[in-house]
Design a binder for these strands. Structure first.
Lengths: 367, 367
DNA sequence: CTGAAAGCGCTTACAG
DNA sequence: CTGAAAGCGCTTACAG
């Protein structure tokens, strides 16, 4: 709490403030404030006068003073799935939100949590209603159920409540911003890694697990990207697609459809750990396995060398940045970039630790 | 500039402020301020009384008010190499610093730039002297010349000026923080990619270019990591090391030391584009080439498919976070994590665009 | 439509 | 050693 040394005190480059504007325009600061915030109740004439002065002096509001003086305490909400022991994916976004919340608490911003069941559209609908009756100033949501989400954001539009998508987005929406991944391109990336590993021989299997319930869109796009890469590149390799429904995920025999000896690589569009577990039991460690997401299950098999590559979409950061986008928009009136595709990170046993250390750092984003 | 709807106004969860503390301790706010900042001139007795109250009420200072009221305008400086058309690497950290500077300008923080010639220790020494006479509140530096940097930071220690390292660090220093990469592990990662690509056949060449001048430490560590991986893993592959001095980098024949037909992969510990250029001319596109850093030259050959993988250390982010660490430490008195190793990102033709879009975004870090 | 005044939670001289 | 007062650049009632 103590300053170790005298600090530099500069008064020179003083920016023009509301008071200077008022002086130059020969009005009171109250009137200046009215035009800054477009509150009306100002005659056209004085309005113009003030705008001219602001223009000439290149006025920039002091946001620190704004925050301190303002009685407004923006309330944000998030509407995302809750995680379960079976599917931990959504824990990461939640952590990102909590971290952001802590950092912006100093600015009077609070965050409320509305978590729904990712397998039940009804659950989403109910929580969406709860959000509306909570009357928030901004919403972060994962629009997993397109139709229901679409109805919901229309209501937000009417109420002029800004909202940000994470994970996926809706086509026709007026969302402030979107933080997600390019699933198609990630499929191409996986294909490249696979090509390198297999070198034009054998069969490569694309496995979709439980896509009748979850991840439908992402999995499809990943598969498409993967196929497209091989169409353009390596004609020597044969691709097989295997769809395994959620009910059968514990049935290890579902993989045996493909002749054992031929398989040189497997691309799991989700739940790679299930495939890894199978390969591990069968002792097939030489098969290249590429999957998605740094879940604990996946990490275990990555460390064991059963999974070779995991592609990560930074779910923690998606949510963190989503909250910050709302914060910057509402409190600082900053311009927000609409589409934000996270870089596709490739994780291997070798860079896993650096990645976890950095990404999971709970101490705060910058420290 | 206009609010589209009425905002939530909450007065309930009012945090205790300096005024409440003063009331409860039966002193003036001035005295409270003295103990908060340990300015002395307070009797032991009242000091204890105030500390007790702060403890009980769990007092947390309001940093927004602090910034507004304070006359202190922290001045940061950076001491890093300047970039040249021949070596653009250091442009990225500079961009990161500039971006951070813009974001924290609202808090009265300014940044001064002291750029030195990365090949001349004298240049570093001179600029370091300039930094000292500028009397900054915090320093961000790349301690490229160990001895000179060591002398310099000792002076900073004496002056109690906090400093942060980027790119590399000094062993014995009292730096506030460090943002860099794990070069050894990045070498291992490169080796894994190489192993996947070459599948136990042929010769792999490790090429060090111009390491008598620059990057000595990083290049050495990268090489060590690379070799270590192969020691532990694939005995079937033979490794060759090729050191090319800067004078010979335009002499394409320097590569011919290794029999042509044997080479299945090349690992360039720096300046991969030079190797790529050579391979391109010779039409040897089937050789796997792995290098470092997203410089424009490298990117060109990555897009062409001559370079297969680039490992990136996020130089922009290193510098950006370094400045933020100083800012948070000085202005908000936040706890700063000392060692920050950036994740090792693997860039290919497939994920290059997403990466560049995100990383190079000049609009601000979060938007 | 406009202005004067109080206040946001701190810091900073200044007076005693 | 301690307190009272002014001020940071805004916002917010309130009065006219």
């Amino acid at each position: 709490m103590t300053l170790n040394r005298k600090r530099n005190i500069i008064n020179s480059s003083k920016r023009t403030g509301i008071k200077e504007i008022a002086g130059l325009a020969d009005v009171s600061i109250g009137t200046v404030d009215r035009v800054i915030h477009n509150r009306g109740q100002v005659s056209k004439k004085t309005m113009k006068k003030i705008l001219d002065v602001m223009d000439k002096t290149n006025y920039r509001p002091n946001f620190v003073a704004r925050v301190l003086a303002s009685k407004e305490k923006p309330r944000l909400v998030c509407l995302i799935p809750f995680h379960t022991p079976e599917n931990m994916y959504w824990e990461a976004p939640l952590e990102g939100i909590i971290k952001a919340e802590k950092e912006i608490a100093d600015y009077g911003v609070t965050v409320n949590y509305f978590l729904f069941n990712q397998y039940l559209a009804d659950s989403f609908e109910k929580k969406a209603r709860d959000v509306l009756s909570d009357n928030p100033d901004g919403v972060l949501l994962a629009p997993i159920f397109s139709k229901q989400a679409s109805d919901f954001v229309k209501k937000l539009d009417n109420l002029k409540i800004p909202y940000v998508f994470i994970d996926s987005k809706l086509k026709e929406a007026n969302n402030l911003s979107f933080f997600g991944q390019n699933s198609f391109r990630s499929g191409m990336l996986a294909a490249k890694l696979m090509e390198f590993s297999c070198r034009s021989k054998g069969t490569i299997v694309i496995v979709n697990i439980g896509t009748e319930y979850e991840n439908i869109h992402h999995a499809r796009e990943r598969e498409n990207g993967f196929k497209t890469y091989f169409l353009n590149n390596t004609p020597g390799i044969s691709l097989h697609v295997l769809n395994i429904s959620s009910e059968n995920i514990n049935n290890r025999d579902s993989l045996v459809e493909i002749p054992d000896t031929d398989i040189s690589g497997i691309f799991a569009t989700s739940s790679a750990h299930i495939i890894a577990n199978y390969l591990n039991h069968k002792g097939k460690n030489q098969i290249t396995l590429i999957g998605y997401d740094l879940t604990n299950d996946n990490i275990t098999f990555l460390e064991k060398g059963i999974i070779d590559f995991l592609i990560c979409q930074k779910p923690r950061e998606q949510a963190f940045r989503g909250i910050y986008a709302l914060f910057h928009h509402i409190v600082f009136k900053k311009q927000i970039r609409r589409n934000n595709l996270m870089p596709l990170d490739i994780i291997t046993r070798e860079n896993l630790n650096d990645y976890l250390e950095f990404e999971l750092n709970k101490e705060g984003y910058y420290e």
